[in-house]
Nucleic acid binder design. Structure first.
Lengths: 248, 248
DNA sequence: TCGAAAAATTGGGCTACACCATTTGACGGC
DNA sequence: GCCGTCAAATGGTGTAGCCCAATTTTTCGA
């Protein structure tokens, strides 16, 4: 592995450290084995403890390690899945070792209308690119996706069409980097037409996911409504008790 | 100890700062208004910028503020719900201004068996307290909850019975503080008996949530299987792009 | 007058150090 | 041999200050 992401040295020291630690976690160490101490890591990498802590804290938040005061930092048991990270369908499938694809892709430019406009903080008259497609993994339908992107942020997107990853195109062509998203997950059942599209029995359970994605400047880039087959999907994540409120 | 018990001042400086900032966010400031700068906060509170940053970063992670380099830190639009935080049903309902309750509570002590044992990392023969109840909000059924706690961690729990919040009892009686949980959310439909318990039509959509909860020492405290009415529940959260991988 | 360049502001990352809180393990008394 | 005590190890919180990167504001010239 050692993805290293192009760029020889990888960005910050914290990021380098993170890569190294991920290597340890996925390579040498087994679950519940102890990582080097913060002070050791700081010394061997020539950075401060604070920098080490930031990297370890992040991994802790992602559920890859757990930390106990006085004892040490330990590798977590392997995660089943990970929905805490922001990924596109394409990334998600590739991470699972599946080949992502699309069926019935339709791209059009339409006025946002009331609902989509509200989601993207646009006037109902503003134009958006609407991408509708059935997403597949290894050729099998997995979800139905309707994505909306403000035309003024990505002019000509509708004309250009979508080949693979929308996120990739947004990044490379329009320099729009999505950094954050608000997601709302609902449970539903598939009505006959949707069930047929996904190739499952009518009234099968499904997830309906609404997502508003933002860039670093809190600008709304994308609104997406997706319907996922529940037999192939689950959401798995780690949550923490945040503050020290005694309000039980 | 003793120090922060009554907590007139709340424990750490970071926590005090957090409280103050939450006050600002929920009180004086409106969405998209600018918070004081890190340097200002540091000075007025007599703490370092690092301490301020930690508090602000945490709020950012929780989606209550957003930060833009060079510009400032701003209040986010109000959250619809929050599932990023670890709460008990009781806490969750109270936070929404509803009165939590229980129906048909059954508490028994049984051997863990294969599945529950695996979830709690116990031998199938080890005893667990099994609590089964229909949770209500303002008297209306909201979810069906089956909770399992290792008997050796909470001896006598089955005999003692449950009155209100299990989490509260675990904390106060057994000094078991849950700090982290792994949650897995599935979509399903309600079979007739469950539908009847929840007072909704048969085959209504629902969430099935599996949760393993840990304390600070990564000890498994609780395993819970819950079924929530989908018409009353959704999961809403904020996700971030974690690292700087260009692997689109 | 307006736009581009320069300066100030503000968050992001890091160094170096200090002390506290909890856990672990070794030592020693019984 | 067992168990309590105490010191060492380890993560948690905090101070003080530095430079960098992105954004916003100001300045100044065409």
């Amino acid at each position: 592995m050692a993805e290293a992401a192009g760029n020889g040295r990888a960005g910050t020291k914290g990021a380098q450290l993170r890569s190294y630690l991920l290597g340890l976690i996925e390579g040498e160490l087994k679950p519940h084995e102890k990582l080097p101490t913060e002070r050791d890591l700081a010394e061997t990498f020539g950075v401060t403890r604070l920098t080490v802590r930031r990297a370890l804290d992040q991994l802790g938040y992602e559920g890859r390690v757990y930390r106990t005061q006085g004892a040490g930092t330990f590798v977590s048991e392997p995660r089943i899945a990970k929905s805490v990270e922001l990924t596109s369908f394409t990334q998600d499938m590739r991470a699972r070792g599946l080949v992502p694809g699309s069926l019935d892709t339709v791209v059009e430019e339409i006025p946002a209308g009331a609902e989509i406009g509200a989601r993207l903080a646009l006037s109902p008259r503003d134009l958006v690119a609407h991408i509708s497609r059935v997403r597949t993994a290894d050729g099998e339908p997995m979800c139905i996706e309707n994505t909306y992107v403000p035309s003024k942020l990505a002019p000509g997107l509708a004309a250009r069409g979508i080949t693979g990853s929308l996120y990739q195109m947004l990044t490379e062509t329009y320099h729009l980097k999505i950094e954050k998203a608000e997601q709302s997950i609902h449970a539903t059942v598939l009505d006959p037409p949707l069930a047929k599209l996904l190739g499952v029995p009518e009234f099968s359970p499904a997830f309906k996911v609404l997502r508003v994605a933002y860039d670093a400047r809190n600008q709304r880039i994308e609104y997406a409504e997706s319907v996922y087959r529940a037999d192939r999907y689950s959401y798995d994540f780690v949550i923490f008790r945040t503050s020290r409120d005694n309000t039980n």
